[in-house]
Write a protein that binds this DNA or RNA. Sequence first.
DNA 1: ACAACCGGGCTCTGCCATCTCC
DNA 2: GGAGATGGCAGAGCCCGGTTGT
Length: 386
Amino acid sequence: MTPLICEMVLSSITGMLHCTAGRAVLGLCVSRQLAPWLSSLRSSTSKVVQVSPGKENEVLVENLTVLGVDIKMARRRQPGVLRKVITNEQGLARFLQAKGASREVVASIISRYPRAITRSHHHLEERWRLWRNVFKRDDEIVKILERSPESFFRSSDNANLEKNIAFLWSLGLTSKDLHRLLTTAPRTFSNSAELNRQMVELLQDICVSLGGTDPEQFIKRIISRNVYILIRSTKRVKANVEFLRGALRLSDAELLHLLQGHGADILDLSSEYIKRNFRSAEQKLRSLGCCQEGVKKFIILYPPALYISPENLKNKIDCLLEGGVDIEQILEKPRVLDFSAETVRSRLRVLEKAGYDFKKQGIAILDSSRKRFEAKLEKLSEQPEE
DNA sequence: ACAACCGGGCTCTGCCATCTCC
DNA sequence: GGAGATGGCAGAGCCCGGTTGT
């Protein structure tokens, strides 16, 4: 049966329901006896039929309870869904289970995003097919749905999803980039294609206004470095670029360079957060005798410092200082701050026991993978101090 | 052979506000 | 006026190892 015919059949039934005085009662009967059939007929654009206002569809609630859905959670999140007469909970459950989702996963998906049960079989099939353009296996998609049901179900507009995928391809992103984008920031794909286009245009404009000559490359670089960028608002990204330019007093060329490097990572921070962290880092460094120019150099060399919460940053710096590291050494090799305070602390303890002297031997040893750190440590023990 | 540099892999939803449409 | 669709927000790092340079 074509979707059009489905629609016609459905609307005639819907019409029947509207004409009936005991609509709610009939609605429940329909739900019990015809729901599976209706579910398979329903398309995503079909009319919404409600039980009498304010009342939940008891049969639906019962069905959901049987599926293991957390009704309280569903009610809190999308109360309107529980009042609907025509829904597709059974169809959705079968669909997802056929794709490899367990009963628990299905229940959790519906509990967290109840509107999922309003999507028709046809819609689900189509959406899944589109996601499979990016993913090789069903279980990859199931994992994402389990993590973020909203990303998959929030929009009923499959044409928009198709446009989005085409648009992102057109930017020259590789299939690997696209895969990572959809895995990590699945919301990107339920954005309107227009919204994504606006962000891309903003990035393009930023690049050109800073004297960049290859905006296409710039965009690819930003998106692949920061896969969250497209789920941020242009307002936020604009504000952060302006903030970085002002706070660091950067020239166009310097800013362009920063944004294409680690600067891209912090572009999506909340604008207030980035300011707060900057002020706090500045204050901490100044208190340690660092000049304004030094602060600037530090942030340019290591923008991820603005990602670290004020308390955590202070903690890491203090812990290095207490361990015998110089603030100048931290400023020169800020990537030592990549590691957790706990890792740094334990390395400092080990090195102290080994009689390591940071003044003489530098701090590079702290900024290495566990494997390399241990290898270096072993070397040290083989060559006792003279 | 070793250090230094650097890119990149993981990872990020769940809620509220505001529209649009019926 | 209510539900659906969509935009936007808060929240807040750590680690590995390939490549390049000496």
